Amino acid sequence: MLRIAVPNKGSLADTATEMLQEAGYVGRRDPKDLHTIDPYNEVEFFYLRPKDIATYVGSGALDVGITGRDLLLDARMPGAHEIEALGFGDSTFRFAGPPGRFTTVEDLQGLRVATAYPGLVDAFLDERGVAVDLVPLDGAVESAVQLGVADAVADVVSTGTTLKQAGLEIFGPVLLDSEAVLIAAPEEAEGTDTFLRRLRGVMVARRYVLIDYDLPASLLEQAVAIAPGIESPTISPLRDPEWVAVRVMSPRKGVNKVMDELYAIGARAILVTAIHAARL
């Protein structure tokens, strides 16, 4: 059986669980369960702290796992490697400090930097030859400067509002653009390809929809230019020989604009259908 690590809590847990369900897997029924088996799909799920997943997978104790790219890099487990970005859990890591005090990361030389990701920050600064005194914290990193335990912080940033409220401003380059990723052990286990294919199918289903519409056959080339599909639209004849029925996969984003343009050239009975699962 393929042994899979899944976040048991935190920002990645719910979406990862939903993704696995959409991929056809049966997960835990009780949120307190730490281990469950899906015999039909020949997989075992282990529900672990997100920060520990890279360690278990990198050591070979588990075959694959879902975690954050930030957590993977922070763990510094040579055996664990990213094999697919999963399209959720986006986050950005930046440095922040008192307004006007810092301009570049080189300004941090010899100072204290608080972070919940010491491995990630240390690797980033080491590449740039900047030596600092790292202050590892589990949370509330933005308070470290105000409370006097650090001169600057390195933390997750979305809008930057939380850092501003703590009297800090962002400086220097982006440390990392992170998201949820599928990671694998050094030796690829049997079943990994199937698991990855299913997750890719979920991502395709989330990004695309099916568009069906009727159209005068003489306008087909115009319609195909608006919505070309993945490879080519499916064209079916209607009872009226001057009309055809068209089915095409189209990106979910912007689909209403595509419908408007199809209608404008003469398409009618335009229907959009969600895709539950897909294989491309």
Rank of each mutant, 00 (worst) to 15 (best):
L2A: 02
R3P: 13
R3N: 13
I4A: 10
A5W: 00
A5G: 04
V6L: 05
P7A: 05
K9Q: 15
A13G: 11
E22V: 04
E22L: 15
Y25R: 06
Y25T: 01
R28F: 08
P31K: 13
P31M: 07
P31A: 01
P31W: 10
T36I: 15
I37Y: 10
N41G: 04
E42Y: 09
V43S: 13
V43N: 04
E44A: 03
F45D: 07
P50C: 03
K51G: 08
D52Q: 15
A54D: 05
Y56S: 13
G58N: 06
G60D: 00
L62S: 03
V64S: 06
D74P: 10
A75I: 12
R76I: 11
R76E: 15
P78A: 07
A80Q: 08
H81A: 11
E82R: 03
I83Q: 13
D90K: 11
T92Q: 15
A96I: 08
F102P: 04
T103L: 12
T103W: 07
T104H: 12
E106P: 03
L111E: 13
L111Y: 09
R112T: 11
Y117Q: 09
V121F: 02
A123N: 06
A123Q: 11
L125T: 05
D126Q: 15
P136M: 05
G139S: 14
S143W: 10
L147V: 15
G148S: 11
V149E: 10
A150F: 10
D155V: 06
T162C: 09
L163V: 08
K164T: 05
Q165H: 14
A166W: 09
G167M: 05
G167T: 05
E169P: 01
I170Q: 13
I170G: 08
F171V: 02
L175D: 08
S178W: 00
L182H: 11
A189Q: 09
E190N: 07
T192E: 14
T192R: 14
D193I: 07
L196Y: 12
R206S: 02
D212L: 07
Y213D: 13
D214G: 00
L215Y: 00
L215D: 02
P216T: 01
P216W: 06
S218V: 11
A223Q: 06
V224H: 01
A225H: 09
I230S: 12
I230W: 10
E231V: 12
S232M: 05
I235M: 00
P237E: 11
P237R: 09
L238F: 00
L238E: 03
R239S: 14
R239Q: 13
E242K: 12
W243V: 04
V246C: 02
P251N: 10
V255S: 06
V255T: 01
V258R: 08
V258C: 12
M259Q: 14
A267Q: 04
A267P: 01
R268L: 00
V272W: 04
T273S: 14
A277S: 14
R279T: 13
